[in-house]
Amino acid sequence: MNLTLPAGPFRAYLFDCDGTLVDSMPLHYTAWSETLAEWGCAFPEDLFYAWGGRPVTEIIAALNDQHGLAMPVDEVGRVKEERYGQLLPKLTAIADVVAHVEEAYGRIPIAVVSGSTRDSVTASLGALGLLDRFDTLVCAGDYAKAKPDPEAFLLGARLLGVPAEECLVFEDTDMGIAAATAAGMASVRVPPPWERRP
């Protein structure tokens, strides 16, 4: 997989985490499936990927609405995150994206802007030895409106001290690309797992 970057120059890079820096989406789906099975709640894989970038609490609330369930949002979210943590030894990086992190490190400011919790992001990046590469992390709970709203990316740019129009976003989801566009930022699309693998 080769990522084609839009014409620059860019003064900062903003990276989504799950499915962009780390090949975590299959592991997250396993954690979701095992957790939701206890509640008799179906979560088809295509819907999981369509909802990529949504915070955990938002996903559980939406599934409750969709299935007429009353799953306790905080408890189910905690169990799901614990299950994901148990799968971390299987986590791998997305090498072509990490190459851009390494190229930018020390040259321009770089941040992670994620819909996942800070605990999940730091666990994923820490497991792969990438946590120290980033100047700042923007995670669920740091902003009020999730992607596709631009708030998270605009916060990331502000924390890095770089105007939005001079930032390049790396993203794997439609919602993330829409959020970057709404923030006035250029973006590069990271293909999903089934397109990256031969």
Rank of each mutant, 00 (worst) to 15 (best):
residue 68 G to Y: 12
residue 69 L to R: 15
residue 45 E to F: 10
residue 1 M to S: 13
residue 37 A to P: 09
residue 155 L to Y: 04
residue 91 L to W: 01
residue 128 L to V: 06
residue 11 R to N: 09
residue 126 G to S: 12
residue 172 D to V: 03
residue 186 A to F: 03
residue 158 R to F: 00
residue 155 L to P: 03
residue 34 E to N: 14
residue 8 G to Q: 00
residue 160 L to V: 13
residue 122 T to D: 13
residue 81 E to W: 05
residue 130 L to S: 02
residue 16 D to C: 12
residue 178 A to D: 10
residue 6 P to N: 04
residue 121 V to P: 00
residue 197 R to K: 08
residue 119 D to T: 10
residue 191 P to K: 04
residue 131 L to M: 11
residue 76 V to S: 07
residue 44 P to H: 05
residue 104 A to W: 11
residue 36 L to A: 11
residue 20 T to V: 08
residue 38 E to G: 03
residue 88 L to I: 10
residue 60 I to W: 00
residue 137 L to E: 02
residue 34 E to G: 05
residue 21 L to I: 11
residue 92 T to F: 00
residue 20 T to D: 08
residue 53 G to W: 01
residue 114 S to R: 06
residue 24 S to Q: 10
residue 107 R to C: 01
residue 187 S to Q: 06
residue 29 Y to H: 09
residue 18 D to G: 01
residue 90 K to R: 15
residue 6 P to K: 15
residue 113 V to H: 00
residue 174 D to K: 14
residue 106 G to K: 12
residue 147 K to W: 06
residue 41 C to W: 02
residue 61 A to F: 11
residue 158 R to A: 11
residue 42 A to C: 07
residue 171 E to T: 04
residue 118 R to K: 09
residue 24 S to W: 03
residue 152 A to R: 05
residue 176 G to D: 07
residue 21 L to C: 05
residue 105 Y to G: 08
residue 22 V to G: 01
residue 78 R to W: 10
residue 13 Y to P: 02
residue 154 L to N: 03
residue 7 A to Q: 14
residue 162 V to L: 10
residue 35 T to L: 04
residue 166 E to N: 08
residue 165 E to D: 12
residue 46 D to P: 09
residue 81 E to P: 14
residue 18 D to T: 06
residue 137 L to G: 01
residue 83 R to W: 02
residue 72 P to N: 06
residue 101 V to K: 10
residue 140 A to D: 14
residue 160 L to W: 07
residue 65 D to M: 11
residue 88 L to S: 12
residue 81 E to M: 14
residue 68 G to H: 10
residue 27 L to E: 04
residue 74 D to M: 13
residue 81 E to K: 01
residue 119 D to E: 15
residue 184 G to Y: 00
residue 90 K to T: 03
residue 107 R to E: 03
residue 38 E to W: 11
residue 5 L to G: 02
residue 101 V to C: 11
residue 38 E to C: 09
residue 123 A to L: 11
residue 171 E to C: 11
residue 93 A to H: 05
